[in-house]
């Protein structure tokens, strides 16, 4: 049986309606996807069926999960956050700058932590061996960068606008353009891997990965804002995207350690 976009659209609508009903009946807002989100077919066999076991971190401040791995200046070089300068030539595509702040749930900046990004090139092709999409590779673009957040929790990348790309979830499945982010917090509990999208992408409603975030406001937080102040004259267009880490953090007294 061939799975069409229409089939997936119906499943997405049903999941969304079920979520709206849960909230109307008093269930809490869900800021994260459910791991068993069938419209994204790869999730079906890869999520636990047993409920997670909750750890109350307030009861044991010594938990190693309340500390975080450390990263420092020797883990990066000065141009690791400029993905347009990793090869001899200039990559093809529209240059963009992406910047924002890394915060915890209390709005405190997360300083000196590692932010890694990876993305497709402007034609929608990843520099990955297993990638099947026949769009051209760009010899001047790998699409991987990293940086440390500064004293205000700020990060900054220069790259090119990634292209949308097809995948095999169903017939005519296309991912909206996105940049993958991997982020560390002040505690290992705050570890986050996610994706940043670009404003007004017409592919949003068709994509089961984005739609796995069933809460409308939460989903909107995955979309960067065009920021003219971040655009660099004669060089790049700017996007602003703040990242807020979930999960318990170290105590207030440990801030600035």
């Amino acid at each position: 049986m061939t799975l069409t976009q229409q089939d997936i659209d119906q499943e997405i609508a049903a999941e969304h309606a079920a979520y709206e009903k849960r909230v109307a009946d008093g269930a809490p807002v869900e800021h994260h996807p459910r791991r068993d989100y069938a419209p994204y077919r790869s999730s079906v066999l890869r999520h636990p069926r047993q409920p997670l076991v909750a750890i109350d971190t307030a009861r044991d401040p010594e938990l190693v999960e309340l500390r975080s791995p450390a990263f420092g200046e020797r883990d990066i070089t000065g141009i690791d956050n400029d993905l347009t300068r990793h090869h001899r030539g200039e990559p093809i595509g529209e240059r963009i700058t992406v910047s924002g702040r890394l915060l915890d749930r209390a709005g405190r900046p997360v300083r000196g932590q590692l932010v890694e990004i990876w993305q497709a090139n402007s034609a929608g092709r990843y520099a990955h061996r297993r990638e099947q999409h026949d769009a051209p590779l760009d010899p001047n673009f790998t699409g991987f960068g990293r940086t440390l957040t500064d004293t205000e929790g700020r990060y900054h990348f220069t790259t090119v606008q990634p292209g949308p790309y097809p995948w095999r979830n169903h017939v005519n499945a296309w991912r909206p353009a996105h940049i993958h982010f991997s982020v560390f917090g002040a505690a290992f509990t705050q570890r986050l891997v996610t994706q940043m999208y670009f404003p007004n992408d017409p592919l949003f409603p068709y994509d089961p990965i984005l739609q796995s975030v069933t809460d409308d406001a939460a989903r909107q937080r995955l979309v960067a804002a065009y920021d003219h102040g971040l655009s660099v004259p004669e060089f790049s267009l700017g996007y602003h995207w703040d990242i807020v880490l979930d999960g318990p953090a170290a105590t207030w007294t440990e801030e600035g350690r």
Partner: peptide, 21 residues
Amino acid sequence: GPEHVLPTPSHTVGPFYGYAL
């Protein structure tokens, strides 16, 4: 209160992180 900023949702790492992470 102590949690006044709403979190960024998680997403899958996807299949193509292998050349990056």
